[in-house]
Design a protein around this nucleic acid. Structure first.
Lengths: 132, 132
DNA sequence: ATATGTGCAAATAATTTGCACATTA
DNA sequence: TAATGTGCAAATTATTTGCACATAT
């Protein structure tokens, strides 16, 4: 029944995500884990990210023109995605979440288990760079 | 300056998407195009889908645990995504779109160019199958 | 001891790209 | 005839998986 066993690697991955708010890709996690475990493999990183997402300890964000992102915040919140640099920022949308919740409860063609709002655009940093 | 030239393949791809509401993947488009152009290549399909999305004639939906989806509807609307079978359905959310619009206009850490709400869950068909 | 986890490398899946030839304007 | 598009195959990118060995319970 697939019970869970401790692993240093998994704990470090979790801790790493906990300390970041920028929703890194698996590859970024991998690069950072290599500093602690020089021999860690990308496969291990992917396996643990999937596992952590499955048990709800982290959240997997579907890709937007690139690699998936992983987020330690598992509570309901929205994202702003910069289409220039790919950065993902949390965005405060309490009222939206309430409305989504309401819409979800009214949906009749299936069972809604989750929802999210996403905003696409260009972040401040990229706007500044454009002025050059 | 990359001006646009007519191509039968591109027109057919557009027409095909126009006749569907289920947001097919590039591969599904490819399989259907092969019925018309037996020698068409997947590369051509991808190139035209990207091109059409760039000029705003279709919409590219970021992947959710799989291949990207393409949609002829380019107006603002939301999606219900079945996490079992991957089906994507349009969902009517006028009030949500208004609220998202309002939130977008208030956002200060960048320039919002678009937004979307997505609902995840299990569609009616998959719910029925689960009962077996 | 036995299930679970890991590293490694190979496999798979989705998408992109270089190039010679074909088509459009 | 010059720019754009196509087919083909190889390359790239993101992710998954089989296997022998290592580690946790």
């Amino acid at each position: 029944m697939a019970s869970l066993k401790y692993s240093r690697q998994r704990e470090s991955i979790k801790e790493f995500l906990m300390g970041r708010t920028d929703h890194p890709t698996a590859d970024v996690v991998y690069e950072n884990m290599k500093l602690i475990y020089p021999n860690i493999s990308l496969g291990t990183v992917y396996r643990n990210l999937s596992l952590l997402a499955d048990i709800g300890e982290i959240k997997k964000l579907p890709s937007f023109g690139g690699a998936d992102r992983f987020d330690f915040r598992t509570d309901q919140h929205s994202h702003f995605i910069c289409t220039k640099c790919g950065r993902i920022m949390d965005i405060d949308t309490e009222n939206i979440d309430q409305l989504l919740e309401k819409t979800a409860s009214k949906f009749e063609s299936g069972q809604v288990l989750g929802f999210s709002a996403r905003f696409f655009g260009i972040c401040e940093d990229c706007l500044k760079k454009e002025k050059n």
